[in-house]
């Protein structure tokens, strides 16, 4: 039985990410990690590949983690955690350890969509009992906002700068949640910190299932998104309400949409507050918004068709 997710109850729990981390003011990743760890009851062993979260939580000789946490290289966080989990199973078999634990990877989109992809795919295929969390801020923010496989179509980054040559990123982002689901693992979900109850329920559900689990969580980055420092939650809410970031889960191949916006907003409302999309509002780039909107509408309809019978309205 999982513990209560009422905020009042949660506020009695210790937050396992310490103060003094060096994440930017208003960082979404910190909020995501905090919520994930608040939802977990068992002792946690975590691992992070290189990324914003890693560099800001382990500045030489200091750590913000109050749990055993390993920094692995950019490309192998999933392999590292797979090794830890295998060791744990062996120790348990030998009777040297008896406690139940949760094995969690916190990786950014660069370490998930691109560089860590092969190790993640392998770990899922081998069926390790672990939860892989991707906090998706849609670019390599830590090294200076370079485009990644997660960067949305049309977004301006330092390696896809909007100008006369290109109107921002000219490729569509990977649908990583679907790619993970195609590994036929028991649980895959997408969540957003603006819908915290939904997020934490998904964490608890994932950890109640044995085997590999993957959850993709939107993590606003105002430095990279060129927005305001206080809008991490507001923007993630807009991402959900415009269906840019639909909330759903796929459990044993069965899709369920976990939140249907009462009033689905046009994509422009999500794009407008972000400087990385400012150029899209020039007349010559209007087609990018229209193309993105058409894709989002098509994806949303397809998702609803797949999971509509199970959908609940909150």
């Amino acid at each position: 039985m999982s513990s209560s997710l009422k905020i009042k109850e949660l506020s009695k729990k210790e937050i396992l990410l310490a103060q003094g981390h060096r994440m930017c003011q208003g960082c979404g990743a910190s909020i995501v990690v905090k919520m994930v760890m608040l939802a977990i009851d068992k002792p946690i062993v975590a691992c992070s590949p290189t990324g914003c979260l890693e560099v800001t939580t382990c500045i030489s000789d200091y750590t913000s983690w109050k749990i055993p946490w390993i920094h692995s290289a950019f490309e192998n966080a999933a392999a590292t955690m797979a090794g830890v989990e295998t060791m744990y199973r062996s120790l348990k078999k030998q009777g040297k350890i008896s406690e139940d634990m949760s094995f969690v990877v916190f990786a950014g989109d660069g370490g998930t969509y691109d560089i860590g992809f092969q190790s993640l795919s392998g770990a899922l295929e081998r069926g390790h009992d672990m939860l892989y969390i991707c906090y998706d801020n849609g670019a390599y923010m830590n090294t200076g906002i370079q485009r990644s496989g997660a960067t949305p179509f049309g977004a301006s980054t330092t390696t896809s700068p909007a100008g006369s040559a290109v109107p921002g990123k000219i490729h569509q982002r990977k649908d990583i949640t679907r790619i993970m689901a195609a590994h036929n693992i028991p649980y895959v979900a997408q969540a957003s910190p603006s819908h915290h109850l939904d997020l934490m329920r998904k964490i608890q559900k994932a950890l109640s299932i044995e085997g590999p689990k993957y959850i993709n969580i939107l993590s606003p980055c105002h430095r990279g998104w060129r927005s305001k420092p206080d809008d991490a939650i507001a923007l993630s809410r807009l991402a959900v309400n415009t269906s840019f970031w639909p909330l759903f889960e796929i459990e044993n191949g069965k899709t369920r949409v976990t939140y249907i916006p009462k009033d689905k907003r046009p994509l422009r409302e999500f794009l407008r507050p972000q400087g990385r999309f400012a150029h899209l509002f020039q007349p010559e780039n209007e087609w990018i918004i229209e193309k993105s909107q058409a894709k989002i509408d098509a994806d949303w309809s397809a998702l609803l068709a797949e999971g509509a019978c199970e959908a609940i309205e909150e």
């Binding site: 310490a18 003094g20 060096r22 500045i59 200091y62 109050k66 749990i67």
Partner: peptide, 9 residues
């Protein structure tokens, strides 16, 4: 664990 509390932000 959590010794980053020494870094006052």
């Amino acid at each position: 664990a959590g010794n980053s509390v020494a870094l006052k932000t």
